[in-house]
């Protein structure tokens, strides 16, 4: 019995309903919310501001610092607050994806802080976080080359699906599930994030990348609308 129909009734290349709002944290220099269905992330950007401790400063350019955090009420079973091995990893890959787009050479010795909080988690949280952070950085007026859009691709049994949810992530029949979060730069079409959890054949991986590129275009459209809608 193979995976012929998705558990929540979506088409195989269909994303969950997306939502993006810019400017939701009044005290931040830039902020945004991004949601894939039940997965909701908010990002707040502070800076550029002077970086302390001084030994972390870079006299050639400003640096970017990301902090990803799942709030304790975001999952069915209460999560112990504070940083974990997982949140450290996601902070780091988010930072790498975002440093591809920001251009902080005008602000040496400064730091731009990005705080991503997951309000509600139903898989693909790092993707929602990156999407929200890209919007928040743009809203903060940081010099940027382009916008990054992110989506997670899954291989459930032998089918490629777009925007995996928790139910699919835990699918165990057949070949089980493989989760591949990816991020694409909207203009130059480069890949800024690529992680793979599970196993996949090379040929199918190419299909997955193709699917991600198409899905990221849809994400980008939502991001574009949210930024232009600012009033």
């Amino acid at each position: 019995m193979s995976y012929t129909k998705r558990l929540d009734g979506r088409k195989f290349d269909e994303l969950r309903e997306m939502k993006a709002i810019v400017g939701i944290v009044p005290n931040a220099d830039g902020s945004a919310l991004f949601a894939f269905g039940d997965t909701i992330a908010i990002a707040a950007v502070y800076g550029p501001k002077q970086l302390h401790p001084q030994h972390l400063q870079d006299p050639r350019r400003g640096i970017l610092r990301c902090n990803y955090d799942m709030l304790s009420f975001s999952v069915p079973e209460r999560k112990k607050p504070g940083p974990t091995r997982r949140s450290h990893e996601i902070s780091k890959v988010t930072q790498w994806a975002l440093s591809e787009i920001v251009n902080l050479e005008e602000f040496p010795n400064t730091v731009v802080d990005v705080h991503i909080s997951i309000l509600q988690a139903n898989a693909s949280t790092r993707c929602a976080g990156i999407n929200a952070a890209a919007l928040a950085l743009a809203h903060a007026g940081i010099p940027m080359k382009e916008i990054v859009s992110s989506v997670s691709i899954g291989k459930i049994d032998d089918r490629i699906v777009v925007d995996v949810n928790k139910e699919e992530e835990e699918y165990e029949e057949g070949a089980g599930s493989t989760d591949i979060p990816m991020a694409f730069l909207a203009r130059s079409k480069k890949i800024a994030l690529f992680q793979l959890d599970g196993g996949i054949e090379l040929e199918q991986l190419k299909d997955a990348i193709e699917a991600a590129e198409q899905a990221c275009k849809k994400v980008y459209k939502i991001q574009q609308e949210a930024l232009k809608d600012i009033r």
Partner: peptide, 23 residues
């Protein structure tokens, strides 16, 4: 191409961006 978020203004031959937000 825009390098930041803002209002693009085309006055004569010059194209520039007026910031809407940020520090």
């Amino acid at each position: 191409v825009a390098s930041r978020f803002g209002l693009a203004e085309i006055s004569g031959r010059l194209v520039r961006i007026i910031p809407l937000s940020g520090v």
